[in-house]
């Protein structure tokens, strides 16, 4: 079994839901972003998703896009980023670290070199502009035990879900609604399917969506996009394995720095 999968399953034995938090490498500075990561790991976040910034992040909403553009002013280097986060991963063996980035920065070293550079310490990779149709590109990673983490969306048809679950390793990243990261929370779930639905039935729809995906796979399900509050999180318990929170931490940081991040963490971990 993939190492990320067994990690999540072990953790889940005594926790109803794991927390996966997202940080943009280099925002607001490289040093500060490493401090944010450390704070999260110190507070027992089970999975840390580190986004290496790209100039054209088409799947990200305004909060993360702005953070990426600011981060780029620091001239971040992928090789350095990998060294920095591998060090963190070794310092915090009770948590797992994932890399997230868009295709073009990752194509520069290429996936064979990337697999070597990521080594044992980075457990998986998320590439939002690579669809399952191109899964073969990531063979060098999966061959070295690094899980390519594929996205599932609410309007995916059964045959498409099956195509993903046939290839999937580690866990699945279930996008809670159409659109980009950030913006809406559970009371505005999925604009295409659920927009007019009242909150309670929006939740039901979300739970129905996850239960449906569950029928295709035994892999852990992580849910992200627009998760902001403790309430959002508790709604996922019993239906998902991991809650992914990104923009909410960036918004907290932008308002009140590291302290606000710590407060947000304790709010979400309550």
């Amino acid at each position: 079994m993939n190492k990320l999968t067994s990690f999540i399953q072990n953790q889940r034995q005594n926790k109803p839901l794991l927390l996966m938090t997202h940080v943009v490498y280099g925002y607001p500075t490289i040093e500060k972003s490493l401090e944010i990561m450390q704070l999260m790991l110190d507070n027992g976040v089970e999975i840390l998703e580190v986004q290496f910034p790209f100039s054209d992040p088409v799947a990200d909403g305004p909060t993360i896009t702005n953070a990426c553009h600011h981060a780029l002013e620091q001239n971040p280097k992928l090789t350095q980023c990998l060294q920095d986060i591998k060090k963190l991963a070794r310092q915090y063996p009770q948590s797992r670290v994932l890399l997230m980035s868009y295709l073009n920065p990752l194509l520069q070293p290429g996936f064979t070199s990337l697999a070597q550079q990521m080594g044992e310490d980075i457990s998986g990779i998320i590439i939002p502009d690579l669809s399952i149709d191109h899964h073969a590109m990531l063979d060098p990673l999966s061959n070295s035990g690094i899980a390519p983490i594929w996205l599932i969306t609410p309007d995916m048809k059964a045959d498409r879900i099956r195509k993903v679950t046939e290839q999937a390793q580690g866990m699945l990243y279930c996008v809670s609604r159409s659109g980009v990261t950030g913006q809406k929370s559970t009371d505005q779930l999925s604009t295409n399917q659920l927009s007019t639905a009242p909150k309670a039935s929006a939740l039901e729809n979300m739970q129905g969506y996850l239960n449906n995906v569950r029928q295709f796979t035994s892999l852990p399900l992580a849910v992200g996009f627009g998760i902001n509050t403790a309430e959002d999180i508790s709604a996922l318990k019993g239906h998902a394995d991991v809650a992914i929170v990104g923009s909410a931490f960036l918004n907290a940081f932008n308002k009140g720095g590291l302290e606000a991040v710590a407060r947000k963490l304790s709010e979400l971990q309550a």
Binding site: A59, P128, D129, L130, S131, D133, H134, T153, K157, S178
Partner: peptide, 21 residues
């Protein structure tokens, strides 16, 4: 289907899954 639109090594479709349908 997504092999469509290739011109030599260029072209193709590299879009977020959310745009697939």
């Amino acid at each position: 289907m997504n092999d469509e639109g290739r011109f030599g090594q260029y072209g193709g479709s590299y879009i977020p899954e959310i745009l697939y349908s």
